[in-house]
Amino acid sequence: MKHRLQFTGKKLIRMALLLLGVSIVTFLLMCASPLDPLQTNVGQVALGSMSPEQVERLEAYWGTETPAVQRYLGWLGDVLHGDMGTSLLYRQPVLTVIGQRLAGSVLLLTAAWVFSGVLGLILGVTVGVFRGRWPDRLIRGYCLLISSTPTFWLAILLLLIFSVWLGWFPIGLSVPVGVAADAVTFGDRLRHAVLPALTLSITGVANIALHTREKMIDVLESDYILFARARGESEASVVLRHGLRNVSLPAITLQFASVSEIIGGSVLVEQVFSYPGLGQAAVTAGLGSDLPLLLGITVVTSAIVFAGNLIADLLYGAADPRIRRGAARE
């Protein structure tokens, strides 16, 4: 137990350093951005018709005149006191914006994450077993095709087929247009989440299936599988009792590592489907020079990704008897 606590403690320190690094890089990228916040958000024409005092107040609001180091340290100091600042575009506390957006995305992200993980594992194990034969070639071909397809293009394709031509799903947004907020049913939300979630899953599945396939092939070529066969275990028993068991450990790592890919993919997919989630807010903040919001979103998503990896490490320790019993003996 002491070992486990030490491990978690070290990881948490590492996480703090990572978040610091991520925020610095985001800040530097934002400073290097060629977009002028005033021109982007207020507009050339409106700026031209304003008095110098008005422009000055706007510059102060967007912080363009403040030195970069001072701005960053100011932000950091506030964050350490638990204040993530106020979004310049939404005029709401950053945490409130992120909370709302995350609540909007969570259905989408979770569905895509679970679906791609489960289906990817099943497909990967199957093609590993049928290596070299037609199910393998078929599924592997599909996976390679999908892996080399840009996510946003796939999103547009699905939108075109299922929303425009077939009309099965709405064109975009997360709730129906023209319906009062309390009249929106869970079914409505679900219908709106299907296509974006599907897009994210389809890309996620390919990656997980290809990785699982490699692992499964390694496992099936191992000495212990040979011996299991020699002891008269059936092919089904070999795959289900030994194959799945030994592929499950790398699968845990893969599944939690895919959190980052799902979140990354959601930025593009939410943009295509005009889905008001965290990904879309990140794009808005980035293009609109909303520094506090962008920093907030990067830090929060990095923390989620890091937490995913941490959970994978901890689960690994609980699932692998060599680590579990090894640590218990110390």
């Binding site: 212990y224 040979l226 011996f227 066969r229 002891r231 008269g232 030994n246």
Partner: peptide, 18 residues
């Protein structure tokens, strides 16, 4: 195999580690 014909392999890596 496994009933009347048995294999005795080289070592511990012929056992499922998990």
């Amino acid at each position: 195999r496994g009933r009347e014909i048995a294999l005795i392999p080289q070592g511990v890596n012929y056992l499922d580690p998990l």
